[in-house]
Design a protein around this nucleic acid. Structure first.
Lengths: 139, 139
DNA sequence: TCTGACACTCTCCTTTTGGTGCCTATAGAA
DNA sequence: TTCTATAGGCACCAAAAGGAGAGTGTCAGA
């Protein structure tokens, strides 16, 4: 199993850093990237695009479900900023905007796949653990 | 690539559901599990335990770094509830509490590993994409 | 002529998140 | 005798997240 420090160490090696201490800047960057990217809506939108290919704004909203327009706008902007998706505006009326995964986005979707499989495999165990916890701790 | 709906479909098959529609209850459960589990502090604590084995409360705090006592307490409670870690209290004074990963926790750490590797591999590209975005959109 | 579709933006409001500081108990160290 | 370490709980407060609803501009269709 690879640890965070292994990972960061490998990054430092790649980047030419020599001392074994973790560079706070690099660690902060990785944490930031993970925090952005492990977002709930980000993963769901990535999944929607993986499944359906190129989609329009409202199509994403319908497929994902339960997301407000505000959050959808904000999330796709962030994803575009991070290079996970491309946003193509067709200058017609009514407006038409297409969203497509980039290669970076596809790689992330693939990486996150393991967590989905974990959830699929163990969600019943998580439920059982929660029930046992409630029974144990009372309430 | 496996999609969310594939995953949910597989879960429904396991559970004996017949209709092809996604059960809202199952989907909600999976989303909930993912949301809990994809939490920033959860992943960092899991990593700390993966690296160092059994740890005490303040040790986790020191290793993870930047986490308040309140968040640490809250997060380890949630993780214990979800069955990701075990919490062993030694009834001595001063208090002594040990935290250890469960098998479920180890599996999740392994599953999430792909995302860490992704971050390691592509964080420079994400940075570049952000810089390009800022240059493109201005400010 | 009126409505709706599209892809947003903006304001207002509530909920959640998370930080800080103070409190507990007691053994052992200074 | 006072201080510290330990693993928290509790109350208060600031900041951020996120939802609801209205507005926008234009054109196609009823």
């Amino acid at each position: 199993m690879r640890t965070i420090r292994d990972t960061v160490a490998a990054m430092q090696k790649q980047g030419g850093f020599s001392h074994p201490e973790v560079s706070p800047a690099v660690e902060a960057l990785v944490r930031d990237v993970i925090a952005q990217v492990a977002d709930k809506w980000t993963m769901l939108i990535l999944e929607a695009l993986e499944e359906h290919g190129t989609l329009r704004f409202t199509q994403i909203g319908r497929i994902v479900g339960g997301i407000s327009q505000k959050m959808l706008t904000k999330t796709v902007r962030q994803m575009e900023c991070d290079g996970l998706i491309t946003r193509k505006v067709h200058p017609v009326i009514p407006p038409h905007v297409d969203y497509t995964q980039t290669e970076l986005g596809r790689e992330l979707t693939a990486a996150f796949c393991g967590v989905w499989v974990w959830a699929e495999t163990y969600y019943a165990q998580v439920e059982a653990a929660r029930a046992a916890f409630r029974a144990r701790e009372g309430r």
